[in-house]
Structures are given as structure tokens and as C-alpha cells.
């Protein structure tokens, strides 16, 4: 295999890593600010993809449909998150992690069947608009156009998250709450609203990841199962609650997988897991500093 094919393969891996980053950044943000390991984060990703499908199908015209889907589907998902947070989750923040995990698992079971009720068990797909089909090439490297778009989406989200947590009042408070919750309470800030907002932001990112991945994959029940486990591992190797850690972890995941595809295709999916295990054994609390 020649060098440019290798580089193209890496680029595809990177573009996949961007989806993982967007999803795990949301998971990590919620973990950092609320200390909630949200198991139904993957279901939100799946719902994001299904809602994107419905919107795109309703719009009809592919370009408009995709644009609408990516704009609106994450908002629908964020709304689902808001409802769950306000009605149920907000009453449980004092409980142990174990209970929070089981609670979010319960929500996952429910959302799973809700998706089954609304969309059925069939496979769905979104056709990307003509402009985004086919291959893009630059510097002698070929890459599917849509993957090139994804490659750009990751950094946009990273910058947006940075601006949100450093340049807005609410984001700064959320970041402070991640490091020292007592202090924020003492300052007389309504922590409950900050938590709700942080949770909604996390859910939005899950939905965004789902909407963005929709045109590249078959949308189906069960797509939540792998993404959630991958996102949890990424967040752990990055350092719980550290969004830049989520970026590093996602890159590691995406790159090891695309390397694996070249080396040993049948076991390609094993490589990221192996990398995770090695990282955790070498640096048990993650590559970057955890906020826990």
C-alpha cells in the first residue's frame, strides 16, 4: 500500500474521530459538571440520527434536508435531555454514582423502546446532497467529501465549547462547578440552573453527533450500544471531565482503528480497545488531568 493511500486512510479515521469527539465531549462535560455518568448519552445520539432522518425525509430536497436536520435534530435531543433532567435527574444529584448509572441505564431502556415505537426496527439512511457525494482531493490525498466536512466539524465544536466555557458567564460557572462545587454554591449562584444547562449542552452534543453521522451510516436500533461504550472509554482515557482529554482520546480511538484496518482488518475494532487498556494501565486516571 502506498503512502498516500495510508494518509487517506488516516484522514478517514480522523473524520470518524471527530464524531467520537463531539459525542464524548458532551459526555465528558456532563461528567465534569454534574458528576453523572450518563448511560443514555448513546440513546440521545441514536435519537439524533433518527430525528435527522425524519427531518431530511420531510424536507425532501437533500441539501436543504441535511442542513435542516443538522440544525434542528440536536435541538430536539436537547429538549429530551431537558425534560429528563428537570423531571427526574435533578432529584438524584445527591445519590451515589452507582445509583446515577442505574438511573441513566433505566432511561436508556425506556428511550430504546420509544425509538422502536416511533421509527420501528428498520434500517434507515439519509442520502447526502450531490455536492457532498464522491471524493474530494487535496495535496494528492483522496477523501470522501462528507468526511472532509466532518473533519471541519470537530474543530468547530472544540472552539465553540472553549468559547462557551471561557467566554460566557454561565459556561465559566459550569467550569468552576466542575472543579469546586462548594465554591459555586457559596457564591450564591443557582447551581440547579447551571446543572440543567450543562446537561442540556451535553445532550445537544450527543444529538449533534448523531445528526452528523446519519448520512454516513445505516441508522438503526442498537447504534447507541457501541457509541456509548466507546465514548465512556474515550472520556476515561482522556481524564474524566476534561474536554481536551476527550479530543485526545477520540483521536487515539480513530487513529488506532484506521491503523488496525490496514494491519489486520478482521480485528480492526480490537485496536482501539487495546489502546485504551494500555493507556489505562500506564496512566490509570487518564492522559490529561481529570477534574474529579
Amino acid at each position: 500500500m502506498d503512502l498516500s493511500a495510508l494518509a487517506s486512510q488516516l484522514l478517514v479515521g480522523l473524520s470518524r474521530a471527530m464524531i467520537l469527539f463531539i459525542v464524548s465531549a458532551g459526555l465528558s462535560f456532563v461528567l465534569g459538571v454534574l458528576r453523572v455518568p450518563n448511560v443514555f448519552h448513546g440513546s440521545l445520539y441514536m435519537i439524533g440520527a433518527f430525528v435527522a432522518f425524519t427531518i431530511a425525509a420531510w424536507a425532501g430536497e437533500p441539501a436543504l434536508g441535511l442542513a435542516l436536520a443538522i440544525a434542528a435534530a440536536p435541538l430536539v435531543v436537547a429538549l429530551v435531555g431537558l425534560v429528563v433532567e428537570r423531571t427526574l435527574l435533578s432529584h438524584l444529584y445527591q445519590r451515589e454514582h452507582l445509583m446515577l448509572i442505574l438511573f441513566t441505564f433505566g432511561v436508556m431502556l425506556i428511550l430504546n423502546d420509544v425509538v422502536k415505537l416511533v421509527w420501528g426496527a428498520d434500517y434507515r439512511s439519509i442520502l447526502p446532497p450531490a455536492a457532498l457525494q464522491g471524493m474530494a482531493s487535496a495535496f494528492g490525498l483522496a477523501l470522501p467529501r462528507y468526511n472532509a466536512l466532518l473533519l471541519g466539524a470537530g474543530p468547530v465544536v472544540a472552539v465553540a465549547m472553549w468559547l462557551f466555557t471561557h467566554r460566557t458567564r454561565v459556561g465559566t460557572i459550569a467550569r468552576a462547578a466542575a472543579v469546586d462545587r462548594e465554591m459555586v454554591g457559596v457564591l450564591g449562584i443557582d447551581v440547579s440552573r447551571v446543572f440543567a444547562l450543562a446537561f442540556v449542552v451535553g445532550c445537544y452534543l450527543a444529538g449533534l453527533g448523531g445528526a452528523l453521522v446519519a448520512p454516513t451510516t445505516s441508522i438503526s436500533l442498537g447504534m447507541d450500544h457501541t457509541i456509548i461504550i466507546e465514548a465512556f472509554l474515550i472520556v476515561t482515557i482522556g481524564g474524566l471531565g476534561n474536554i481536551w482529554g476527550a479530543l485526545v482520546g477520540s483521536l487515539l480511538f480513530g487513529v488506532t482503528q484506521s491503523v488496525g484496518l490496514l494491519v489486520w482488518p478482521q480485528f480492526a475494532v480490537v485496536f482501539p480497545y487495546l489502546a485504551t487498556v494500555i493507556v489505562l494501565l500506564a496512566r490509570p486516571t487518564g492522559l490529561l488531568r481529570s477534574v474529579w
Binding site: L88, H91, L92, R95, M99, L102, F103, F105, G106, V107, M108, L109, I110, N112, D113, V114, K116, L117
Partner: peptide
């Protein structure tokens, strides 16, 4: 075939 929804609901009731 929506039995996992029932398990989810029971689980949440238990936790509360």
C-alpha cells in the same frame, strides 16, 4: 416486545 421499557420504568421507580 416493549418489555425493556417496563424494566426501565420499574428500575427508575425503585431508585426513587
Amino acid at each position: 416486545d416493549l418489555w425493556t421499557m417496563f424494566v426501565g420504568i420499574i428500575l427508575i421507580l425503585l431508585i426513587f
